[in-house]
Design a binder for these strands. Structure first.
Lengths: 190, 190
DNA sequence: TGCACCTATTCAACTCGTTGACTACACGAG
DNA sequence: CTCGTGTAGTCAACGAGTTGAATAGGTGCA
């Protein structure tokens, strides 16, 4: 029932097809909750069955038809109910890179270093995407002006969390690369 | 096969029972990869079957016996092989709190605020645990001295990542609480 | 004395999530 | 003209992960 809530959060941005959601739906919710197409289509079926969303078939020329889903009144109520629920336990983070780093002393230092470097690359890319999204949301205003305005602030807050996370990734990665280089040098040089 | 690698990373610290692992095993690997007891016992059985670990039964008085697992030579080799693997795609983070924040404009602001406050509390607690662990590892030395020494650096690097993550959690949470308070005031006050 | 909780493991049943392939049409490049 | 790519969705099968409970003795407290 967790994916369900993420889907509803995504649909607050407006109607979307299963395909849209599968592709990240403008990267909004996708950054802290993504799922595979099959999972989404399955869940969308169930949600429709439960009356949380409705589908609207859009006939398209030169493309397959698509079903655009949007929240029903019951769906909106479910969103409200979900946000009011007591928080479950603090998200178990699962990060394969960290498992490798933890194992690095018994493993292949250079391989781990390049895994970290790869992480840095897409952290950089993600940060750039976030920054563009931020500019689009701010639309020339300062952050204070944005928050004082009447728009939804939820997506902006999660955006800031994502940006901080990626910046952190970069800082840590840089440090870790240096420390591992130092260690590798110590091994080969003495 | 992902849990398997996390278990091996944990066993690099020394032998452990299923119960130890289930409880976080001195919080080492647990912070970026935890699993339920059932999952662990199942996986341990399989790993033993595959010759990656061996069990040693320890008879205990006034307690149920336990089986302590440790890595075999094949297990160590598997660790090395795993670290050398090309990295899979960048960890999908899944955070329920972020889903709630994303939905906050259509939800219950005060409830979300208290969910964030709760997150802050255990972030603080976790940071304190991390700091104690750090002191234990450093054992009076500076960080530079530690890295120059001969010990395993993997666990220390992941520890630093965890600490940065929790600090970030705290900063962001504080900011978010303020912004949401401001928004709540705007709603009730005009 | 009784109740609740801790150690240590196991069983059964379930849902969640992933992988891979498959249909079908359209568009553009070579 | 075919090959690859993008849109839009579905099916089958499996592995990962969760929930709830049972067992069985020991410890702490009131």
């Amino acid at each position: 029932m967790a994916l369900r809530n993420a889907v509803m959060a995504a649909l607050l941005e407006g109607e979307a097809s299963g395909y849209d959601l599968a592709k990240g739906f403008d990267a909004s919710v996708a950054n802290f909750w993504m799922a595979t197409p099959q999972q989404l289509y399955r869940e969308l079926e169930r949600m429709e069955g439960d009356g949380l969303i409705t589908a609207r078939v859009v006939e398209q020329e030169r493309r397959p038809n698509k079903r655009l889903f949007s929240l029903t009144a019951a769906g909106l109520e479910a969103v409200r109910a979900y946000t009011a629920e007591p928080p479950g336990k603090p998200t178990a983070i699962r990060d394969e890179l960290m498992v490798k780093v933890q194992s690095v002393d018994a493993g292949d230092i250079e391989a781990v270093r390049s895994a970290i470097a790869e992480r840095m690359e897409w952290a950089t890319a993600k940060l750039a995407r976030y920054t563009r999204l931020q500019q689009r949301l701010l639309d020339g205003r300062t952050e204070d002006e944005y928050f004082a305005g009447g728009e939804r602030i939820g997506p902006y807050l999660t955006l800031l969390r994502g940006m901080a996370f990626e910046r952190d990734n970069l800082h840590w990665s840089e440090m870790a690369l240096n420390r591992l280089e130092q260690r590798a040098a110590a091994f080969s040089g003495g």
